[in-house]
């Protein structure tokens, strides 16, 4: 008989720049080793996942990460007085710091388990530390520098060749071809995501992504490389295909071994025409396209739950190449009383 776990999932904002919550839930629903009851955790009343009643059994609003860990813990204490959450999937970069801090407390006091990287793993792969990270682990990373003001942008550009990539500390990246463009991008990104902003060397090539899981003991649980086939104006993949790339899998395996990475991750890599791989970013969570890994034969989401619950874990050795995902937009019709309930009571 299979166990039935109550699993809480954040990132249910299935919008044009979607969070990974809905694809994580879809993978959970397809798990063969356990059944699930899904608790959606939302930050805003218009997150589409709240109203996907075929995927989500109950939804609770949670405080924004900026409210701090105490507020978050108190909200979980309340939710746990009603539900019996066994496992939690945090799916946003911006909330991970709080959840990593709360990991032990949530487990010991409320019985909620997670599989998340350590604070050291989380911080060291941060965009602002990535160049150093690459040096420490023998992986090529484009040269980058941090800036805190527009004046500093001009000063730093003296030592860089155009084009460059201007990046926010959590999200967003824009290519700049001139000094003026670099400052414009800096102003826009710093206003939205705060400081510092990163100026990174531009590497021409093909962007490849890997969705994978590390077991925390240096072993790769699974990894599926994907190439984006269609990109939205926000730079998000709207379609992609699994590819066969042994070198990229080896690079992933090496990184997981070196860093003892714990939990899901996404690697963003540029492959140059002469077959060199540059690590552009490591996202410390599942990406929004992670359901493709399930479609390609690796239910990595299921493996993460099994790691957290102390069950036997499947270490995937293969996946199907040539599997595509094609995203679509879908209008749901929602009754006002549902919107009212989540807005007023913070649960639905």
């Amino acid at each position: 008989m299979k166990p039935c776990y109550t699993i809480a999932v954040t990132g249910i904002n299935a919008i044009d720049s979607p969070g990974p919550g809905v694809p994580v839930i879809r993978s959970l629903k397809e798990a063969s080793s356990f059944d699930v009851r899904i608790i959606g955790l939302s930050y805003e009343a218009l997150e589409p996942g709240i109203y996907m009643r075929n995927l989500v059994d109950k939804v609770y609003q949670v405080p924004y990460p900026s409210a701090g860990t105490d507020m978050m813990f108190e909200r979980f204490r309340y939710i746990q007085s009603i539900e019996k959450i066994d496992f939690l999937f945090p799916n946003f970069d911006a909330e991970l710091f709080n959840f990593i801090k709360l990991e032990q407390k949530l487990r010991d006091e409320l019985g909620v388990r997670m599989v998340v990287p350590s604070l050291q793993q989380f911080e060291s792969r941060n965009k602002v530390n990535l160049f150093e990270y690459g040096k420490n682990h023998g992986v090529k990373v484009p040269a980058a520098t941090l800036v805190h003001s527009a004046r500093e942008v001009s000063a730093k550009l003296v030592d860089m060749n155009f084009p460059i990539v201007v990046k926010g500390k959590f999200y967003d990246a824009k290519i700049a071809y001139t000094n003026e463009q670099s400052i414009q991008h800096f102003d826009k990104i710093s206003a939205q995501w705060g400081l510092p902003v990163l100026l990174q060397e531009f590497i021409p090539g093909t962007e490849l992504n890997v969705c994978g899981v590390g077991d925390g003991a240096g072993k790769l649980v699974g990894a599926v490389p994907m190439r984006k086939l269609y990109i939205t104006d926000k730079g998000k993949a709207w379609a992609g295909v699994t590819i066969s790339d042994k070198k990229l899998i080896e690079l992933t395996r090496k990184l997981v071994k070196e860093t003892q990475w714990n939990g899901p991750f996404e690697l963003e890599v540029m492959k140059t025409v002469d077959d060199k791989y540059y690590l552009i970013e490591i996202n410390p969570r599942f990406p929004a396209w992670c359901y493709l890994t399930t479609g390609a034969g690796q239910n990595q989401v299921e493996s993460v739950v099994n790691i957290g619950m102390g069950n036997d874990v499947t270490y995937f050795r293969k996946y199907e190449t040539g599997k595509l995902f094609i995203r679509y937009a879908y209008d749901m019709i929602v009754n006002m009383n549902e919107f009212e309930q989540i807005s007023i009571n913070g649960e639905l």
Partner: peptide, 18 residues
């Protein structure tokens, strides 16, 4: 070696995704 060609003339390169 790994190029897939269907009878309808559809080619897929699994290492690039093209």
């Amino acid at each position: 070696k790994d190029i897939a060609i269907s009878d309808s003339g559809f080619l897929f390169n699994p290492s690039s995704g093209d």
